[in-house]
Nucleic acid binder design. Structure first.
Length: 478
DNA sequence: TGAAATGTTGGGGCG
DNA sequence: ACGCCCCAACATTTC
């Protein structure tokens, strides 16, 4: 029987896996391969939190393959050379994989595909992670979209859910006698030392089983009322599927199908809202594909002359470590540090603070998120930061400045979120937790170590941001 | 997927 | 009954 290498990357599942499916449908024995090649990730090599997750997800994938009679070959080295070597040693006739859509990875994979074909192998890639190919959706004029709503309207109108493919109960066992000895997981992604990630795994279950369990939970309990619940900071109202989707532990096609299948059981607005969140993910990949510079530069060239503040180390560190003196921001930054994740609404609030009140360029925030988020994803992270900073596609206008106090009052009315992640403020009565600088006597008594005042006065920071924006416009006009 | 300033409206107190 | 004022509630505009 012929052999096909199935090259796993950010698709760490067996269910609804187009490349694995293709191997089996061609009657080939799949040889699952994972190659660690961080040098090829360029400036955006996975961060520490991402690697901590990846390690667990790979462990789960390897176990799932073994339970089915197969085995994951984990290797370290240049992707092309490693694939060539393994193909030669196993006698593979095909190399199959699901596409990644980061521009520099797309370019690398195109070179790899060309070379493998020159070597006489059947090399083929599939869409395993998006509902729509980034180049598939276009305006009537044939241009890429830069505004979400028409993008999503057009995309949904053309959505034809494809049949899902269930992971087989058994897989053929590859003959790895001639193959290189696989590396131990520790050699691929070493465990964090010291084990700073222990707090993560009370909140998360990396791997395909955890992803499917979460999807089931969302569909059964999280969809009814989702549109409003997703904004409430203290609740488990968001889907929390982002890291599972990033690592491809669940197929986005399966997520969309499961949501759509709830039908009348769930209000249409809630269903559409969750689908729209998947839509933002699609939009982020669409924009990154067509404007590959956005990961590092403003999409909107008019922002090039904007007067960003010099990013002072101390200011940035206070933000990173949750010592800004604004409770909802500090709570969010500590949730991020302790669990590798932050509630979506809080992400918007902390991003607005950094880019508007502090006027620090969004790339500094994007970097910190990249290193600390378990769901760090180049397209989504870029889209989120450029949206918040007002520099990106369909971004919040620059003058849209979040007030972190009113945001907390609105979306954490009992101050529970603040108390949970900033326990030093828990002794304060809830109404005093939103702006403790207005209650100096309570601060002194109950939270003597918490900053006496925000790192920037709220009104002054807002005014300075608006003033800088006005100066930009004036400069352009004159 | 804002916030704050400004404008409008209408009920009620009061002379 | 009427005009006047206040002000909350809501709507619109501006940044």
């Amino acid at each position: 029987m012929g052999v096909a290498l199935v090259w796993f990357r950010d698709d760490l599942r067996l269910d609804d896996h187009p490349a694995l499916r293709a191997a089996l449908e061609r009657g080939l024995v799949p040889v699952p391969v994972y190659i660690h090649a961080p040098d090829e990730e360029g400036a955006w090599a996975p961060g520490a939190a991402s690697d901590a997750w990846r390690r667990r997800s790979l462990e789960a994938l390897a176990a799932a393959l073994e339970r089915r009679g197969s085995r994951l070959l984990m290797l370290h080295g240049p992707s092309l050379g490693t694939l060539q070597a393994v193909a030669a040693l196993t006698g593979a006739e095909a190399v199959l994989w699901n596409r990644r859509y980061e521009p520099h990875i797309e370019a690398r994979d195109t070179r790899i595909k060309r070379q493998l074909r020159q070597d006489g192998l059947h090399a083929e890639s599939f869409n395993g992670s998006l509902l729509f190919e980034p180049w598939e959706v276009e305006t009537r004029q044939g241009d890429p979209y830069r505004v979400f709503t028409p993008f999503w309207k057009n995309a949904l109108a053309h959505w034809r859910p494809r049949p899902l493919w269930d992971a087989p109960a058994r897989l053929p066992s590859p003959d790895l006698a001639g193959a290189p000895e696989g590396r131990h997981l520790d050699a691929i992604v070493p465990p964090p030392r010291p084990a700073w990630d222990t707090g993560f795994w009370q909140a998360w279950a990396p791997g395909e089983a955890g992803a499917r369990a979460r999807l089931q939970h969302v569909v059964e309990h999280g969809l009814h009322g989702y549109a409003a619940a997703r904004d409430r900071m203290a609740e488990d109202g968001t889907s929390r599927l982002s890291p599972h989707l990033h690592f491809g532990e669940v197929s986005v096609q399966r997520v969309a199908a499961a949501v759509a299948a709830t039908g009348e059981a769930v209000p249409a607005a809630d269903r559409q809202r969750l689908l729209a969140e998947l839509g933002w993910r699609e939009f982020a990949y669409h924009v990154l594909h067509h404007y590959p510079h956005v990961a590092d530069q403003d999409l909107d060239p008019r922002m090039a002359d904007f007067r960003w503040a010099r990013p002072l180390r101390a200011t940035l560190e206070a933000w990173e470590q949750g010592r800004t003196g604004v409770p909802v921001i500090d709570a969010g930054m500590r949730q991020l540090w302790q669990t590798g994740w932050m509630h979506n609404r809080v992400r918007m609030v902390v991003a607005s603070w950094l880019t508007k009140h502090l006027r620090i360029h969004w790339r500094h925030g994007a970097r910190w998120f990249w290193d600390t988020l378990v769901d760090a994803d180049l397209a989504n992270n870029t889209q989120g930061w450029q949206w918040a900073a007002g520099t990106g596609a369909d971004a919040a206008p620059y003058f849209r400045v979040f007030n972190p106090v009113s945001q907390a009052q609105k979306f954490d009315p009992q101050g529970e979120y603040i108390a949970r992640w900033l326990p030093e403020l828990a002794p304060l009565p809830a109404p005093a937790r939103f702006a403790p600088w207005q209650h100096p006597e309570l601060l002194r008594r109950y939270a003597p170590r918490y900053p006496r005042a925000p790192q920037v006065d709220l009104a002054a920071g807002r005014a300075a941001a608006l003033e800088a924006f006005a100066a930009l416009r004036a400069g352009r006009a004159g």
